[in-house]
């Protein structure tokens, strides 16, 4: 049986998928690589779960697993956003000066 929080989460999931499809469909092929690295950074949101685990003091195993997860997820977040920023800076240059 599904409980109320699960139904709420499923509702969110389905709606977010629809939003995702709508929004991402409008990204031009020109920007597909930054889209991937940027969405990588967003999937680093697991860092939230990792922080919850690493910061609780009830269970040492959970804390250390959480620590490892914080490391991986932070690489995703920091690496993803920075590298995307680097790429997008190249696309932003004024093309008129080169034409």
């Amino acid at each position: 049986m599904l409980e109320a929080p699960a139904v709420a989460a499923l509702t969110i999931l389905i709606l977010a998928l629809f939003v995702g499809v709508e929004v991402i469909s409008k990204v031009p092929p020109l920007l597909h690589t930054p889209l991937m690295s940027g969405s990588n950074a967003i999937s680093g949101i697991t860092v939230v779960g990792a922080i919850l685990a690493a910061g609780s003091e009830h269970d040492a195993v959970a804390q250390w697993l959480g620590f490892a997860a914080v490391v991986f997820a932070t690489v995703n977040v920091v690496g993803g956003f920075l590298v995307t920023n680097r790429m997008l800076a190249m696309f932003k240059k004024n093309p008129k000066s080169d034409a």
């Binding site: 609780s56 003091e57 804390q63 959480g66 914080v70 490391v71 690489v75 920091v78 993803g80």
Partner: peptide
């Protein structure tokens, strides 16, 4: 998330963020 009540021990969190941030940042640049 850092303000969640269950989060009490910040040592490993800070360590993890520093290590991951350094690896990710240096690689990205």
């Amino acid at each position: 998330t850092l303000m969640v009540q269950g989060v009490v021990d910040y040592t490993l969190i800070v360590a993890g963020i520093v290590v991951g941030g350094l690896i990710g940042g240096v690689t990205a640049l």
